[in-house]
Each structure stands twice: as C-alpha cells, then as structure tokens.
C-alpha cells in the first residue's frame, strides 16, 4: 500500500510529489496529462526564477525534478475510488488497481465552452481552446479570440505571430488581464480589442467563415474569420472527488481547510480545484498548495506510526 496517491499531474500534483519524495513518503502520481493546463500556456512570466518560459518547458522541468527525486508518474485517468479500512482503493481507466493510505486531489480545471450553436461541430475545424497548440494553422488568416483574462491576452499575442489579424472580444467591458499584457496587445499592431454583449452565431457550413455578435452598444456586427479561439476560463474537474463524498462549494471547488484537508479523513486537495489561496489559481499558488498538502499527509502518517 502506498502512503499517498496524488491524482492529477499539473503543478499542484507535481509539487506535492517533490515534497512527498523529500518526506520519504511512498507515493505515486496518476494523471491524464503531465503539466495539465500549463501545457497550453505559450508564455509564463510570473513563475519566480524564470523570466519567461513556455508551459511545455516548465512542465519538463517539473517532471525531471519529480523523477529525479524518485516520484513515479502514471499517465492515465482515474475511473473509480473506494474507501477502505485505513485507506483507499483506486482503479484507473485501464483497470489497474492501487491502494493508498491517503489521497491528494490535484485535478485542476478544464476549459470552459461557450455553448454556442455549432461550437462542438467545429472543434478542431476552426474552433480551438488552445492557441499554443493550434496557432500555426492560422498563418495569414483572420481570427477572433473570445475572453477577457490573461489566457485570452497571451493567446492573442501568440496568435498575432502567425495570423493576419486578431480581434479580441471581451464580454460587457470586463477586461481582467494584467496591464502588462494589455500594453503589449495595444503595441502589437495586429490585435484589436472590443467589448461585446452577445455572440449571435458562428457563420459557415463546412468551415468557419465568420462570427456574428452584438457590441456593447447593441449593434449587430459580423467579422470574417477562419478561426475562433475560446479563452473564457475553466471549470473545476471535481467529479471523481465528489463521487467519493468530498464536499465542494456551489461552484464545484473542493472545500479545504488551511492544511489542505477535506471533509473526508485521509483526503486532501491542492491547486486550482480548491477553495484555498483566495482562488487566485496561479502556478505559484497551485505549487504551494501541493507542498502544504504533502506536508499535512506526512504529519498524519508520522502520527499514525507513533
């Protein structure tokens, strides 16, 4: 039986593993995607110690450090978790079974959809939730980005390296990107920003030809674009934790105490999925919560041995 199984391999899960290794906890990380959401970040400039780094490179750095310290990562989803006497039984998507005394849920978030008509139909055919992944397919094309946060701003800057024009649409005047990103967008020359009230429709049959929307002053407008990038934030992926009985708030974030413990004994949570860190949801806060969770697990297990 493992001392700890960490579910999720983003910054929170990987940081938890680094601490768990140093505490000599026998542990395992099970995660669908190493790096998680940061794999989609083209530029990260607020992780201390790195002036500017790609999400992919930072993930690689995390992974190397985890493995060097002895952490083991299994790339798969978790299908089921069951409470046992003194621990938990975890079944993966490929039906492997693991047992652990404690669990840290570091499940992160998933991109939020707009739920527009035809949105699902055009995924991978002009609609994208990942500018870093798909920007190169829009060389010399016109694209629109929907969103008003940092991920929308960095997506716009990344797309501007390839596309002919980039129109960023943010809802109801709500721009929440860091001022440094706004400055860079305004200096860019290819990027324009506009506030919208409603997206009316995606125009096109077999491929995207444009987007119709209502501006903040209620005028109907159409833009000819070949690509639509949706960057409207993300939703927590807490389903598997909820099935076990872990308590969440009304927005599905796992409720944690200052030591990252949940309402169930032996179950901890860390990273974007929790109510902690004032819900700032940054790499630096995810990593910190992972470290705290691992240290709490260590204290619990050490006490049990006494």
């Amino acid at each position: 039986m493992y001392d700890l199984i960490i579910i999720g391999a983003g910054p929170a899960g990987l940081a938890a593993s680094i601490y768990a290794s140093r505490y000599k906890l026998k542990h395992l990380i099970i995660g669908e995607e190493v790096g998680g959401q940061i794999m989609k970040a083209s530029r990260i400039e607020n992780w201390p110690g790195e002036e500017s780094i790609t999400g992919m490179q930072l993930t690689e750095n995390f992974r190397k450090q985890v493995e060097k310290l002895g952490g083991e990562i299994i790339n798969i989803g978790v299908d089921d978790i069951e409470k046992l006497e003194g621990g938990f039984r975890i079944v993966t998507d490929d039906e492997k079974v693991f047992e652990a005394k404690t669990i840290i849920f570091a499940l992160g978030m998933k991109p939020r959809k707009m739920n527009l008509p035809k949105e699902d139909e055009f995924i991978g055919k002009g609609i994208s939730y990942c500018a870093t992944c798909d920007a190169m397919f829009f060389k010399k094309k016109d694209v629109v980005i929907i969103g008003g946060g940092d991920s929308a701003a960095t997506a716009a800057l990344h797309l501007a390296e390839f596309a002919n024009s980039v129109q960023l649409l943010y809802k109801n005047g709500t721009k929440i990107f860091e001022p440094v990103w706004e400055e860079r967008m305004l200096e860019n020359g290819k990027i324009t920003l506009e506030s919208f009230e409603n997206i009316l429709e995606i125009i096109g049959e077999s491929k995207i030809e444009g987007i119709a929307y209502e501006t903040q002053d209620r005028q109907k407008k159409e833009l000819k674009v070949q690509g639509i990038f949706i960057e409207i934030g993300s939703t927590p992926g807490a389903v598997i934790a909820k099935d076990l009985g872990v308590e969440t708030d009304e927005h599905e974030f796992i409720i944690v105490k200052p030591d990252q413990s949940t309402n169930i004994e032996g179950v901890y949570a860390a990273g974007d999925i929790t109510t902690a860190s004032n819900k700032l949801r940054q790499i630096v806060t995810a990593a910190a919560e992972g470290a705290i969770a691992a240290s709490s697990v260590y204290k619990t297990i050490k006490m049990d041995k006494k």
């Binding site: 669908e32 995607e33 798969i76 989803g77 998507d93 490929d94 995924i123 991978g124 055919k125 002009g126 994208s128 990942c130 992944c133 798909d134 397919f137 829009f138 491929k207 690509g227």
Partner: peptide
C-alpha cells in the same frame, strides 16, 4: 484541413474512417 493538434485519423482503404482531435486515451 487539420486545424488542431493532436489529431489522429484512422484510414481504411485510403478513406478517413474515424478521426479524433485532442488527447485521447489508449
């Protein structure tokens, strides 16, 4: 018309029989 990665396409007799966009499990 690939506009998103990763993309996996399964061809049968030269025609696309099934296609997937985004990471898929094994």
């Amino acid at each position: 018309s690939i506009m998103s990665l990763p993309a996996i396409k399964i061809f049968k007799a030269g025609k696309i029989a099934k296609e997937f966009t985004g990471a898929q499990n094994k």
